[in-house]
């Protein structure tokens, strides 16, 4: 299970990556959001994802969209508060990108963060790794 060390994670299995790491500090930081390798593996073949349009306001740990496999639908939780800059349009035609490349081509949306310090409320890679290990038991 791949868990990149430089990302921050939610207990709902989303990740966020800041352009210059978690302490850019400019107040204009753009974060990229996706779901983890563990999540895509648990969901199986992803067939559809419903994402917010650009400009939509997000709240940390509130639902922002839905992701569907053939026989399950799960809600997506935003790791950060902020405004959607861009949803990943490529997922409309190719939702399988989330399975194939959850941390790169399969990203869900880019977000302009309202408060970068929120990042510290999220799990580190190490904490997330421990968390899914416990969840799997």
């Amino acid at each position: 299970m791949i868990i990149p060390p430089d990302l921050r994670y939610t207990k709902e299995h989303e990740w966020v990556r800041l352009a210059d790491g978690p302490s850019a500090g400019s107040g204009q930081a753009i974060g990229t959001v996706g779901i983890t390798d563990y999540a895509q593996d648990q969901l199986g073949d992803i067939v559809y994802v419903s994402l917010p349009e650009a400009g939509k306001q997000l709240t940390q740990l509130a639902v922002f969209g839905e992701i569907e496999s053939v026989k399950a639908v799960s809600e997506l939780y935003s790791p950060v508060t902020g405004k959607v800059v861009e949803p990943n349009q490529a997922l409309t035609d190719s939702p399988e990108l989330i399975n194939e490349s959850p941390y790169e081509q399969g990203w869900l949306m880019k977000v302009r963060l309202a408060d970068e310090s929120e990042i510290h409320k999220l799990l580190t890679a190490e904490q997330y790794s421990d968390y899914i290990e416990r969840e799997g038991e």
């Binding site: 559809y48 569907e68 053939v70 026989k71 399950a72 639908v73």
Partner: peptide, 9 residues
Amino acid sequence: LQTREQHIR
């Protein structure tokens, strides 16, 4: 498109 239906959603 069964995720629209009651047995899933």
